[in-house]
Simulated scan of single mutants.
Amino acid sequence: KQAAEMALDELEAKWGDKYEKVIRSWREKWHLLSAYFKYPKAVRKPIYTTNAVEAVHRQFRKLTKTKGAFPNENSLLKLLYIGIQQASEKWTMPVTNWRQTITQLSIYFEGRLDDIIKL
């Protein structure tokens, strides 16, 4: 958490004049943003790396950035559908050290996983 606070200070020193509102917003909401750091590394990594919405957006951008225009809406939808089909194959990869992660989650969120997973 301290390293993140120092990085935010460095960011503000470098870009504070240009992005004043953004940095001020991060500082005002730091108590929410920094909640992430209360979890052990085994929990933080899956939280950080499994943002499904961002993964989909990244895939869409990758597919559409080289295309100038689409003749109609259907052609865009077809391209995105095929892209999602290909990307979803990668989403079946297991989370590294999942057993350790699930154990830590069961400690931090006691009782919430009992109906789903038997430890």
Rank of each mutant, 00 (worst) to 15 (best):
L76G: 01
L76T: 00
L76H: 01
L77A: 03
L77F: 03
L77I: 03
L77W: 02
K78E: 08
K78V: 03
K78P: 01
K78S: 05
K78Q: 06
K78R: 05
L79F: 01
L80D: 00
L80K: 00
Y81W: 08
Y81D: 12
Y81T: 15
Y81A: 14
I82N: 11
I82T: 13
I82P: 03
I82H: 12
G83P: 00
I84Y: 15
I84H: 12
I84F: 15
I84G: 13
Q85T: 12
Q86D: 15
Q86V: 14
A87G: 05
A87T: 08
A87D: 09
S88E: 15
S88N: 14
S88Y: 04
K90F: 12
K90S: 12
W91A: 04
W91P: 02
T92V: 12
T92W: 08
T92P: 03
T92E: 13
P94H: 06
P94R: 06
P94W: 03
P94I: 02
V95L: 08
T96H: 12
T96I: 14
T96C: 13
W98T: 07
W98N: 10
R99T: 14
R99E: 15
Q100W: 05
T101W: 00
T101R: 00
I102C: 08
I102E: 12
I102W: 05
I102Y: 05
T103M: 06
T103F: 06
T103V: 06
T103N: 10
Q104S: 07
Q104R: 09
Q104T: 05
L105K: 01
L105T: 03
L105D: 01
L105A: 02
